[in-house]
């Protein structure tokens, strides 16, 4: 019997396509205003009139801004994974990225914890940027 598959990332805009193709190449891409340097993901317009931001590769370093732990599954594809975390990491460039923390116990996740991106491949071949405690060994 096939198990239900996880939702795929949504490719609704050019920005989505650039970002997710970067992820496939193990690069974390964010937009940056060519005028003031305001960095965001997904793109958030700043007050500058400069139309096209540039894509820059983020360092992959950040810290946990907040996190939650699902003790029940709201989607059948996640039923076998509970309890599992979803976290928001603030990249050192500024933007908040939704992700999961891996490489440590749930009980050890802390707001403010320094983390580093890991390009994590799911069983279905989907690659997701996840984050592990910075300084830990990982296969990123």
């Amino acid at each position: 019997m096939e198990s239900p598959s996880k939702p795929q990332p949504l490719l609704a805009t050019e920005g989505d396509r650039v970002y997710w193709s970067g992820v496939r190449e193990h690069r974390l891409l964010v937009t940056r205003c060519r005028n003031c340097g305001h960095t965001s993901h997904p793109r958030v317009a700043c007050a500058c009139a400069v139309p096209a931001p540039e894509w820059v590769e983020a360092s992959g370093l950040g810290s946990v801004y907040t996190f939650i732990v699902y003790h029940r599954a709201y989607h059948p594809a996640f039923a076998a994974e509970t309890p599992y975390n979803v976290a928001w990491v603030q990249l050192e460039e500024g933007p908040l990225l939704m992700t999961n923390i891996i490489g440590c116990e749930l009980a050890d996740i802390r707001i403010g914890m320094p983390v580093r991106v890991v390009y994590d491949e799911e069983a279905n071949g989907m690659i997701l940027p996840r984050f592990a405690p910075a300084g830990s060994q990982s296969s990123g």
């Binding site: 939702p7 949504l10 989607h75 994974e81 989907m126």
Partner: peptide, 17 residues
Amino acid sequence: GAGMSAASSWGAHGFFA
């Protein structure tokens, strides 16, 4: 609201509701 983010990239990470 349980299915709200199933079609977005948030659902890929397991965010729902």
